[in-house]
């Protein structure tokens, strides 16, 4: 039998199966990838000013004061409330420093020791001075600070953690 220039029925079915199969694979496959990665492509970060109460609560000359606050984060179907702490140090009437209490070494929580006039980390004995400077220990950088401002007499810190 001479070869016909047209597709045979067999070839037609095979070609159509391949084409339709590819189309269906893409139509199903792309949503499947979106389903797995989609919700987590946008960077979720919180960028808020957290009030720490009136500035008068932190008079000059008092030791650094621990202020604790919580932030609620939605993870999918669940809400998680994390607590954070910061030390407020009123250096002068016009200048306030707010430190994160997270140790810059390995993220334990530091504590102000009034007797020793320093922040001490219980995990690896990192020690920081009143201005957050390194005294001694394994840490490689001074304590992290929150940007702060005073609005209508209220001290506020810029909270940008994700």
């Amino acid at each position: 039998m001479a070869k016909s220039p047209h597709l045979t029925r067999n070839e037609f079915v095979k070609t159509m199966l391949a084409v339709l199969g590819t189309v269906m694979g893409v139509v199903v496959g792309l949503p499947a990838v979106g389903y797995l990665v989609g919700p987590f492509l946008k960077v979720s970060s919180s960028d808020v000013w957290v009030p720490l109460g009136p500035l008068e609560n932190y008079p000059v000359g008092t030791p650094p004061t621990l202020f604790s606050f919580t932030r609620t984060k939605v993870n999918g179907w669940e809400r998680t409330t994390n607590s954070y702490g910061c030390y407020v140090y009123r250096e002068t009437a016009a200048h306030t420093i707010v430190f994160s209490n997270v140790c810059t070494h390995l993220a334990c929580r530091v504590k102000w020791e009034q007797a020793d006039q320093m922040y001490h980390c219980p995990c690896h004995d990192a020690e920081f001075g009143p201005k957050g400077q390194i005294i001694q220990g394994p840490q490689t950088r001074p304590m992290d600070r929150y940007e702060n401002k005073v609005e209508n007499g209220t001290l506020m810190i810029h909270f940008t953690k994700g």
Binding site: A32, G34, G38, P39, G76
Partner: peptide, 13 residues
């Protein structure tokens, strides 16, 4: 609810 409203194509799955 999260699958239906929070996940792309969750409604489809």
């Amino acid at each position: 609810q999260f699958i239906m409203n929070g996940v792309p194509f969750g409604w489809l799955m």
